[in-house]
Design a protein around this nucleic acid. Structure first.
Length: 898
RNA sequence: AGGCGCGUAGCUCAGUGGGAGAGCGCUACCUUGACACGGUAGAGGUCGGCGGUUCGAUACCGCCCGCGCCUACCA
């Protein structure tokens, strides 16, 4: 059972995914554990395939999920998808257009069938991608927002909120998309780039003489003007208040000058504002204040309606031209000025939104916002990072009612019926048979559907069967954590909190982990139109799921956006290959046949290297454990990368090679067995630690390791080492700090110095050298003696002389460490000038450091006010530095004379 | 306009009141029996600027500059 020479993720990932699923590892409720851990997936839209942002979000979730599962919790991750009303309807309509038909031609029922087909295809693709990414969801609990159960939750919520008076039907100014032909909520209106426009002025003649000049960016709306507003204190216009102006196209219309301190600002423009109550939010409010007539001038598609008289039938932009033209012809144009403005655009189709008076369903938000604010303020819900709380508070404190009805065919139909006989509105969980008021059977259901987010906000409990009091709901709700992007903090997170508190009386989750957005290598937003979007499927195919996940985890630092680059991916792919080969090395060094177990060993059998490796491992366990606790996946990834590549491969494996080599000489077989077992146990532990981030490769490699027991058939279902609990029989060393320091001082330091000298002298890598080590501390010779053999290997020395005697005057390169003077004698000539330069550089650096130390210690305030240990440390630094300086000066003197 | 965040090596980013780190990239050398998706050694930074607090500031505070995001407004 050996491994391929290079790691090839495609050779095992799908096999492992199947094994996991077949074994039912991710089904919650199977383990009889007391503590449970649950979360719900932010359901991807069935609009299309998974994008890289999803892959990132899902990777973070799966890390949390796998980590919890390995902690022994009954872990449930509920997967599912979202119907995404407007977005999905749009893509399907686009498809229909390409096929030369339309939803209107098909009719509602057949159109809905088409969308369901679309949904089936993309749900499958999404689910496949999630599996491929390694997501350990409980697939037996997959949900879709239009499932019967979830639809029932939507109706239940609607009826309850209606009965309480929180949901109401009203005629108000709403955001209308003339292209999608539906109402939008405030959040679905984007204001992106400022655009160049004009401020165009024209005059309204005043009845009885004179004129009043107004400026506007939308001249066409003057067709719906019903007043001119001026500031009541504005001297220029005060006398005109109450006067009638003559509408150029509708002279019979009663348009008057009104005084309105809120709308009119004397500083802006001419100080006089035209008022179009039916097509502007501020004008609408002004209209209510003054009882103005609201004249809607557009059809749902944005064309001018009958109220526009001669301009009827023109679209908004054509109408603008023609209105301007007509006003010019009448001599009423009064000039133009360049003006930048940022029009509101439909989030989905980018069409400029038309504020329109319309009858829609609304949800009162203020009564819901209070408890949500409270839940975050008092810590029942924790935001990570907490900086998002302010944003959340600000939005909820200024919240507006939510327009929840949409003029779409794809979504949850509004559970309201209208009586054709008496006009009664009946809101009901189930379709009513007769009018509750007049008993007529002539009932018609509201044709509209609800905003998608109305159902999404119920997701954390609707997936568990709410409103029924199911066992699942009792066990897994409230969920523990929600992992999502900050871009939907208002759309989704805030609304879930409000809905959860309102409908269940409990918070929907205890912690919200916000992450940033995935950008391209240059830090630019990814978009299909810009052509810089990365398909997760391609990444998985090219680098494997683990390298992709590891990259995303490593870049996921505290909620900020991340720049994903190909270089990063290849780098971490190389790491996976390194890990693969380290395991391969161990497996190749195992006894050929029956002895493929890890022997048990006693703590006193461990040598210095075993103990050093274990010490570093335990250090890593603690760091990674802390990082997972704090959702710092970047730190976990970094610690594991460093430990596995550098500590484990570069030092431990390299130093172990002689012990594990097939040698007929007197190598102690017991020693080799112990070393192998330690290496295997530490690797086993490291694979466990890494598993939440890189599940496939760790599972594959772990399956190849000789197991300590068969109690844990899968790594995915095994336990993870923590600061408190070690699943492997490694000793908890209590002298870790000393072990590590000793290794660094007497082995790693001298080896690095000697290698540096080799390189400085230009010694060919293959050439063996003699190395002289002169301990500079008491007991140093004994320490060096301990590491002599290992130093010999790593420095490629044929001889290591540990020398406490007087300094031999030989041609050599030297480096003075705090603990050791490392001497590389050279049989050939030493380039004296070069060596002098090297030592001078070292001396220069030391001089600067010593000067700084001396200055500090000469400062009476430092000595008296700084903590004693800081002062002591500084004194030590000074003493050690002086010692080194003396040595270097001695060497320089020697060079000068020699 | 208000709010939030960022500015540290060529790039992407960690980090801490007590002489700055990582990954990648770069340079030189090396096909050594786990791995060239590799190894060894190196170069590279007045931690955005100016003030303040402090014995000591890259870190804390204030102001400024630059960048990004969010909310609001935009006759």
């Amino acid at each position: 059972m050996t491994l391929d020479k290079a790691f090839q993720p495609e050779s095992y990932e799908s096999r492992i995914a199947e094994k996991w699923e077949h074994a039912g590892l991710f089904r919650a409720g199977e383990a009889a554990t007391t503590k449970r851990f649950s979360l719900v997936i932010p359901p991807p839209n069935v609009t299309g395939a998974l994008h890289i942002g999803h892959a990132f979000d899902m990777t973070l979730q799966d890390i949390v999920v796998r980590w919890n599962r390995m902690l022994g919790h009954d872990t449930l991750w509920v997967p599912g998808t979202d119907h995404a009303g407007i977005a999905t309807q749009m893509v399907v309509e686009k498809r229909l257009r390409e096929q030369g038909t339309s939803r209107h031609e098909l009719g509602r029922e057949r159109f809905e069938q088409q969308v369901w087909k679309w949904k089936d295809i993309y749900r499958q693709r999404i689910v496949d991608s999630l599996r491929r990414l390694g997501c350990s969801c409980d697939w037996s609990r997959e949900r879709f927002t239009l499932d019967p159960g979830l639809s029932r939750a939507v109706r239940e919520t609607f009826v309850r909120l209606y009965d309480e008076g929180l949901i109401y039907r009203g005629t108000r100014l709403i955001n209308w998309c003339p292209d999608c032909r539906t109402a939008l909520s405030d959040l679905e209106v984007d204001r992106d780039k400022p655009e160049q426009g004009e401020m165009w002025s024209f005059a309204y003649p005043i009845e009885g003489g004179g004129e009043i000049v107004v400026a506007t960016t939308r001249p066409e709306t003057m067709l719906g003007d019903t007043a001119i507003a001026v500031h009541p204190e504005d001297e220029r216009y005060r006398a005109m208040i109450g006067r009638r102006v003559l509408h150029p196209f509708f002279p019979e219309r009663d348009v008057r000058v009104v005084g309105d301190a809120e709308l009119a600002d004397p500083e802006t423009g001419t100080g006089a504002v035209k008022v179009t109550p039916a097509h502007d939010p501020n004008d609408f409010a002004c209209g209510l204040r003054h009882g103005l007539e609201q004249i809607s001038i557009f059809e749902p598609d944005g064309a001018v309606n009958a109220a526009g008289g001669p301009f009827r039938g023109l679209n908004r932009f054509e109408a603008r031209k023609r209105v301007k033209q007509a006003l010019e012809e009448r001599g009423l144009a009064r000039g133009t000025q360049a003006h930048t403005l940022t029009p509101g655009r439909c989030q989905r189709c980018r069409t400029i939104v038309e504020p329109t008076i319309s009858t829609q369903w609304f949800l009162k938000m203020e009564p819901l916002a209070g408890p949500a604010l409270e839940a975050v303020r008092d810590g029942r819900i924790r935001f990570v990072p907490s900086s998002w709380e302010k944003t959340f508070f600000h939005w909820l404190e200024n919240i507006q009612d939510w327009c929840i009805s949409r003029q779409l065919w794809w979504g949850h139909r509004i559970p309201a019926w209208y009586c054709g006989a008496c006009g009664e509105v009946i809101v009901s969980r189930e379709p009513p048979q007769r009018c509750t008021s007049c008993a007529s059977g002539e009932l018609e259901q509201d044709p509209d559907v609800l905003d998608t987010w109305f159902s999404s906000q119920l997701w954390p409990f609707s997936v568990f069967g709410w409103p029924d009091k199911t066992d699942e709901l009792a066990r897994y709700y409230p969920t523990d954590v929600l992992v999502t992007g900050f871009d939907i903090i208002f759309f989704w997170v805030a609304r879930m909190i409000m809905a959860g508190l309102k409908m269940t009386g409990e918070v929907p989750f205890r912690t919200v982990l916000f992450h940033g957005m995935v950008r391209d290598a240059a830090g630019q937003k990814m978009s299909k139109t810009a052509g810089n979007a990365v398909e997760p499927e391609l990444l998985l195919a090219e680098h494997g799921a683990d390298a992709t996940r590891f990259t995303l985890a490593a870049l996921a630092s505290s909620g900020t956006d991340l720049a994903l680059s190909e270089q990063r991916l290849t780098g971490y792919r190389a790491f996976m290959n390194k890990l693969w080969n380290a395991t391969r090395f161990l497996l190749l060094r195992l006894p050929a046949d029956d002895g493929r177990q890890r022997v048990t060993y006693e703590a006193d059998e461990l040598d210095d290297l075993d103990r050093y490796l274990i010490a570093r491992y335990l250090e890593t366990v603690e760091g990674v454990d802390r990082a997972y606790h704090e959702f710092r996946f970047d730190q976990a990834a970094e610690l594991l990368y460093h430990f596995l590549w550098h500590t484990y491969c570069d030092w431990s494996i390299e130093l172990s090679k002689p012990d594990l080599a097939d040698r007929a000489d007197g190598t102690d077989p017991r020693r080799a067995d112990v070393r192998r077992s330690v290496l295997l146990d530490v690797l086993d532990g490291a694979l466990r630690l890494l598993h939440p981030i890189a599940p496939f490769i760790t599972e594959e490699l772990w399956q190849h390791l000789p197991q300590r027991s068969h109690a844990e058939p899968f790594l995915a279902a095994s336990s993870i080492p923590t600061a408190e609990r070690q699943p492997l029989p490694l000793p908890i060393l209590d002298d870790r700090t000393e072990l590590i320091a000793s290794f660094d001082d007497w082995l790693i330091g001298p080896v690095n110095a000697a290698r540096g000298l080799r390189a400085a002298a230009g010694v060919e890598p293959a050439r063996k050298v003699t190395l002289r080590l002169r301990p500079r501390q008491p007991g140093g010779a004994r320490m060096l003696e301990r590491y002599r053999d290992r130093i010999e290997i790593l420095v490629r020395a044929e001889q290591v002389i540990i020398d406490e005697g007087p300094v031999p005057d030989e041609p050599a390169l030297r480096q003075v460490l705090e603990t050791v003077e490392v001497v590389l004698p050279l049989s050939g000539a030493v380039d004296l000038a070069k060596e002098r330069e090297r030592l001078l550089k070292e001396k220069g650096k030391l001089d600067r450091e010593l000067a700084a130390s001396e200055r500090k210690l000469a400062n009476a305030k430092f000595v008296s006010r700084a903590p004693a240990e800081v002062v002591a440390k500084e004194r030590e630094r000074l003493a050690a530095g002086r010692g080194r300086l003396e040595e270097i000066e001695r060497l320089l003197a020697q060079l000068g004379t020699g």
